[in-house]
Amino acid sequence: MSSDEDEWVPFSRRPEWSDVKPVPQDDGPHPVVPIAYRADFRETMDYFRAVYLSGERSHRALNLTAEAISMNPGNYTVWYFRRLVLEAVDADLNDEMEYINCVASKNSKNYQIWHHKRWLAEKLGPEVAQKELEFTKRIFAIDAKNYHAWSHRQWVLDALGGWQNELDYCTELLEDDIFNNSAWNQRYFVITRSPLLGGLQSMRESEVSYAVEAILSNPENESPWRYLRGLYKGDPNLLICNNQISGVCLQVLKTKHNIIFPLSLLLELLCHGFQPSTEFVSAVEALRTSVPESSSTSSLANTICSVLEIVDPIRSNYWSWRRSHLPSQVC
């Protein structure tokens, strides 16, 4: 930090800026939330205001925005003005992409930077698709759940293409960390949106197997349970017909460990009309040791809620609400 300051030459001492009169910030006589700006920041912003107000779209203005951005990458007005200048001076946008990648690597959780990247990538077109996908990959190597980077990656795929290896990439990330819900979400995005895979209908069967396998190796992992349900979003009749889905619930329930997710999914199946065999009934019965006897005549859905009220105490209010509002056919 201090070495930056030592090297920093005030604008007032830079000959190329001698024609510009800095514009101070109009904070008023008694501002609230005043920031004790350091001299370098204050002066940079005073010169920025001057070129912003005069509308000067020049190379020196471009350099000035870079200085302002280095001190506060969250200033969207500076970014906005930078785009106006880039267009006006007909700048090389590939250079700009190198610049923004450098800034983004240091500030990967900032809306403005990703918006700027999207603007650039849109202008540069499909030829940068692979580079953009590679860039987000580098971000995910540090933070595999970076929300902005995932949004950017999805936008690149949608707008510029590059779907070829996306499902493999999801598999790769999930092999690293099967609990990475962002990778599960991306997987859902790929199987529903990729023009190369034929859509959800044709991917469903293999994805059910993938999710079931993930569940069996880590039944405490919420992500594949939600993914499994998501594969049948809007199609409950098919959900209840798939024996693999009811089967995985049963299999995990029988272990008597990690029973919250399978109970919750089984409840979902029942609410949509699933007809449980005696095996399901006895698997659930075996869990209700501590549930009061009074509920012995209740339906399976009702029993599931009662069990969940006890084994999932943080959500007891939620399960009791679910219990009192079961669809009439499963009450």
């Binding site: 609230v32 939330v33 005043p34 920031i35 004790a36 700006y37 350091r38 920041f41 912003m45 001190m71 506060n72 990458p73 969250g74 200033n75 969207y76 007005t77």
Partner: peptide, 17 residues
């Protein structure tokens, strides 16, 4: 204290006042 004065590091929130 924040309402009355913020330190120099708050420059990163200069577009969020």
């Amino acid at each position: 204290r924040g309402l009355n004065q913020l330190g120099p590091t708050y420059r990163v929130l200069d577009a969020n006042r």
